[in-house]
Measured scan of single mutants.
Amino acid sequence: NQESVVAAVLIPINTALTVGMMTTRVVSPTGAPAEDIPRLISMQVNQVVPMGTTLMPDMVKGYAP
């Protein structure tokens, strides 16, 4: 099972992602793949992402898996 990126903390809208904001988990439906964490760092979210929420590609500005 592939791990997806999950918010480790509450991420406010327009916040640039840091490694400490993200964790990985096997979830369904799958979100952004765990191996993309290095690409996701410094990208901004376009909505509030509550802690424990799977990071879906459409939540991150300019990100395409």
Rank of each mutant, 00 (worst) to 15 (best):
N1Q: 14
N1S: 13
N1E: 13
N1L: 15
Q2R: 14
Q2M: 13
Q2T: 12
Q2N: 12
Q2Y: 13
Q2F: 14
Q2A: 12
Q2H: 13
Q2P: 12
Q2S: 12
E3D: 05
E3F: 12
S4A: 02
S4D: 02
V5I: 14
V5H: 02
V6L: 07
V6Q: 01
V6A: 00
V6G: 01
V6N: 01
A7E: 01
A7I: 09
A7W: 08
A8P: 00
A8D: 01
A8Y: 08
A8R: 11
A8N: 06
V9C: 15
V9K: 06
V9F: 05
V9A: 05
V9S: 03
V9G: 00
L10I: 07
L10N: 14
I11Y: 00
I11E: 00
I11T: 00
P12W: 09
P12M: 09
P12E: 10
P12Q: 09
P12K: 10
I13Y: 11
I13H: 05
I13G: 04
I13N: 12
N14Y: 12
N14G: 12
N14Q: 05
N14S: 06
N14A: 07
T15P: 02
T15Y: 06
T15A: 12
T15F: 09
A16M: 12
A16D: 05
A16V: 14
A16G: 08
A16Y: 15
A16F: 15
L17R: 00
L17Y: 07
L17G: 03
L17E: 03
L17F: 06
T18V: 09
T18C: 09
V19E: 13
V19R: 15
V19F: 15
V19T: 11
V19L: 15
V19G: 09
G20T: 12
G20D: 13
M21P: 06
M21D: 07
M22T: 07
T23M: 12
T23S: 11
T23C: 11
T23Y: 10
T23Q: 08
T24A: 13
T24M: 08
T24I: 10
T24D: 08
T24K: 12
R25L: 09
R25T: 08
R25M: 11
V26F: 13
V26D: 07
V26T: 08
V26L: 14
V26C: 12
V26E: 07
V27Q: 03
V27W: 09
V27A: 05
S28C: 12
S28I: 13
S28T: 14
S28N: 13
P29I: 04
P29Q: 02
P29K: 01
T30A: 15
G31R: 00
G31I: 00
A32V: 15
A32I: 15
A32L: 15
A34R: 03
A34D: 02
E35C: 15
E35R: 15
E35H: 15
E35Q: 14
D36R: 00
D36F: 04
D36N: 02
D36E: 06
D36Y: 04
I37K: 00
I37C: 06
I37D: 04
I37P: 04
P38R: 08
P38V: 10
P38M: 10
R39S: 06
R39I: 13
R39N: 07
L40Q: 00
L40P: 01
L40H: 03
I41C: 06
I41M: 06
I41N: 01
I41R: 00
S42D: 12
S42M: 10
S42L: 08
S42V: 07
M43Q: 04
Q44I: 15
Q44A: 07
Q44T: 14
V45L: 07
N46C: 09
N46A: 07
N46P: 01
N46F: 09
N46I: 09
N46Q: 06
N46L: 10
N46S: 09
Q47V: 11
Q47I: 10
Q47T: 11
Q47Y: 07
Q47F: 09
Q47M: 09
V48A: 14
V48G: 05
V48P: 11
V49G: 02
V49N: 01
V49S: 01
V49E: 03
P50F: 10
P50I: 09
P50V: 09
P50S: 09
P50H: 11
P50M: 10
P50W: 09
M51C: 13
M51F: 07
M51E: 14
M51A: 14
M51W: 07
G52Q: 03
G52P: 02
G52T: 01
T53D: 10
T53F: 11
T53P: 01
T53I: 08
T53G: 08
T54F: 04
T54S: 03
T54P: 03
T54K: 00
T54W: 06
T54V: 07
L55C: 04
L55E: 02
L55H: 02
L55M: 05
L55W: 04
L55Q: 05
M56Y: 06
M56E: 03
P57R: 06
P57A: 10
D58T: 12
D58M: 10
D58Y: 15
D58H: 15
M59T: 02
M59S: 05
M59K: 04
V60A: 01
V60K: 00
V60Q: 01
V60E: 05
V60I: 13
K61T: 13
K61S: 11
K61R: 14
G62F: 07
G62D: 11
G62C: 10
G62N: 12
Y63R: 00
Y63S: 03
Y63I: 02
A64T: 15
A64P: 11
A64Q: 15
A64D: 11
P65K: 09
P65E: 10
P65C: 11
P65L: 12
P65W: 09
